[in-house]
């Protein structure tokens, strides 16, 4: 390819990158600046971060709590379901898989309204964080399912299980010894995705939350609407601190690992020394 095209493409890609990253940097700076309108020369401060921490840390803890509960729920529901779907390659299985993906396709507002219309009258449930948890689990379950399913369909699960069975392993032993360890990467990827999505979920949560069950993104929306830019930025900074490590871990996991396969080195294939 001619170098001119290369440079143009590189410049374009860098511009796109700037479009995505510059606002992040600006927001981080704004959260640490005394007065963003004046600019950096007004000085750096942790004042806003501390203010947010004192005023909103409950939303942060609640978000982490819901995210962990959501992870537990999607693991318990999703991993066995993925296993069942990977084994049963029937049309019914495919249809059920499609159905389970629906909460991602359907806008969060619709799901949230449906939940409120059905369970809003149960006030104990409606006002607890479990109500939000249900919404998050609905939305994140497909991601766990798909991540695990992707790994399971890439390995020859049927033969591996037959191999274990030929050595005497029963169904439960096969699930624990063979299936779970071999979809570990999928479970890990799914878990990171679930945590990240739950931590940042807003579409559903905004309708499902009550003043006593505000999550971090809900608090963020409040802050953006009513507080000064520096506070919003400091709050966003806290959110970044939580979510960026998860995103980086996800990227590290997604990077294809170099296969350490040693090609046909069969030089040591002298006839076997038999010990009958």
């Amino acid at each position: 390819m001619p170098p001119l095209i290369f440079s143009l493409q590189l410049a374009f890609t860098l511009a796109v990158c700037a479009f995505l990253i510059v606002p992040v940097v600006l927001s981080v700076l704004a959260g640490l600046t005394v007065n963003y309108f004046v600019g950096l020369e007004s000085g750096l401060t942790l004042k806003w971060v501390i203010e947010v921490w004192n005023g909103y840390r409950d939303t942060l803890f609640r978000s982490v709590g819901i995210a962990l509960a959501c992870l537990a729920l999607t693991l318990v529901l999703g991993v066995p379901a993925a296993y069942a779907l990977a084994r049963a390659k029937s049309r019914l299985g495919r249809a059920f898989e499609e159905l389970l993906m629906l909460p991602v396709a359907v806008p969060g507002l619709a799901t949230a309204l449906a939940l409120i219309a059905s369970y809003g009258a149960l006030s104990g449930f409606r006002t607890s964080w479990a109500f939000i948890l249900v919404g998050h689990a609905l939305f994140t379950l497909p991601f766990m399912l798909r991540a695990v399913l992707a790994v399971l369909s890439a390995i020859d699960l049927k033969t591996l299980e037959e191999g274990a069975a030929s050595l005497g392993a029963g169904p439960w032993q096969r699930f624990v010894h063979i299936v779970l360890p071999n979809c570990r990467d999928g479970i890990l990827a799914g878990s990171l995705m679930v945590l990240t999505l739950s931590m940042g979920e807003f579409n559903l949560t905004w309708l499902l939350h009550t003043p006593l069950t505000k999550t971090l993104p809900v608090g963020l929306a409040d802050a953006y609407a009513s507080l000064r830019l520096e506070v919003g930025s400091a709050y966003t900074l806290l959110f970044f601190l939580m979510i960026v490590p998860l995103l980086l871990a996800m990227q590290a996991l997604a990077r294809p690992r170099r296969r350490r396969f040693i090609p046909a080195d069969d030089t040591d294939l002298a006839p076997l020394a038999l010990k009958p």
């Binding site: 579409n203 993104p217 966003t236 995103l247 996800m250």
Partner: peptide
């Protein structure tokens, strides 16, 4: 990186 930034952010 912004893969899972929520809409509000």
């Amino acid at each position: 990186l912004p893969l899972a930034f929520p809409g509000v952010v």
